[in-house]
């Protein structure tokens, strides 16, 4: 098997990295199964593509996408905290609503950015080579986001967000408004997700209304793959694991595609990977004869 797919998988893994960190924030840190992610990814791509086509600076367009993504998370957060809608449903409502918004933003089901200046072409123009350009951009952004999230989660406010996902009753009894911390966590997670969408649109030179479908599962798959292979003992380790998980996920997908699977089968493949990854602790327990129950309990205490 040729390993020619590796650079491409690395590029993609890094560009999808902020999205995975966003899913880590909502799903793991906040313990909030946020399905907004799917449409929010598309929202980031749509916003950036439209703005770039309107002659906005690509960097400005990307940053605006990030802010718009935070607003999407804010809406899900308010649906849940103010209107007491269950987390899953709140996310689905925003996701469905955003589908129409995304179409309005783009004005069509897809937008092409071919032969138009983007962040990626900027860096390519510096002369470091096409592939290296994307990897460099992805690496710099991932490292920056990782450092930022790591810092944020250790600030006093970040501690409160983490405690909200861990033990809501405790943190309320310490005087924290958990509605606020939830909204902050969701806004941040979705901002990162939209950032990924913005980068991916520029990388692929197009934005498409369907590009975010199943993104929550991709994010989850990456988080779990990272946790399983790298571990999540400390906060920093967990964040690095999520980012590396994003790359490994792309490597697995690329490898399987190269073995001849049609790309239309990708979704079922992703579903199988997540199922396997989720079942891994139980299956490991079965094989080694250790009670899977204690294993999982320890995992919970260890995690983060």
């Amino acid at each position: 098997m040729s390993l020619a797919f590796l650079p491409g998988a690395l590029e993609q893994g890094l560009l999808w990295g902020p999205m995975v960190l966003g899913v880590y924030l909502t799903f793991r840190v906040l313990d909030f199964p946020d399905l907004t992610v799917d449409s929010c990814f598309t929202l980031g791509a749509a916003t950036t593509a439209r703005l770039i086509l309107l002659d906005y600076n690509p960097l400005v367009a990307t940053l605006i996408a990030l802010v718009i993504g935070a607003l999407a998370g804010l809406i899900t957060g308010l649906l849940h905290t103010k209107l007491k809608i269950a987390p899953l449903l709140a996310g689905i409502l925003t996701m469905i609503g955003l589908y129409s918004i995304n179409l309005r933003v783009m004005g069509a089901a897809n937008l092409s950015l071919l032969r138009i200046d983007t962040l990626i072409t900027w860096i390519e123009d510096t002369g470091i080579g096409d592939e290296l350009a994307t990897v460099a951009l992805g690496l710099v952004i991932c490292l920056f986001i990782l450092a930022f999230v790591y810092f944020f989660l250790q600030t006093e406010l970040g501690l409160a967000v983490r405690a909200t996902g861990d033990n809501e009753q405790m943190i309320r009894s310490l005087g924290i408004n958990t509605n606020t911390t939830k909204v902050i966590g969701l806004a941040l997670g979705n901002a990162l997700c939209a950032l990924s969408g913005a980068l991916v649109a520029q990388y692929q030179s197009y934005a498409d209304i369907g590009m975010g479908i199943g993104m929550i599962i991709v994010g989850l798959a990456s988080v779990i793959i990272g946790e399983t292979l790298i571990g999540s003992r400390g906060l920093l380790q967990a964040l690095i694991a999520a980012t590396v998980g994003s790359v490994i996920y792309r490597v697995i997908i690329a490898a399987v595609l190269q073995m001849g699977l049609p790309s239309t089968d990708l979704k079922i493949l992703t579903a199988l990977i997540v199922t396997l990854a989720l079942a891994f602790p139980i299956m490991r327990g079965r094989f080694t004869g250790i009670s899977s129950f204690t294993k999982r309990g320890e995992g919970r205490a260890e995690h983060q």
Binding site: T155, E156, L157, D166
Partner: peptide, 28 residues
Amino acid sequence: LGTAASMTIEENLILALKRGQKLRLWPG
């Protein structure tokens, strides 16, 4: 119920020390 299991003793105590005060966007 009184402590956050996934956080360290120090992190739990920081939150307790800030009970009823405004939280900073800076490490505690």
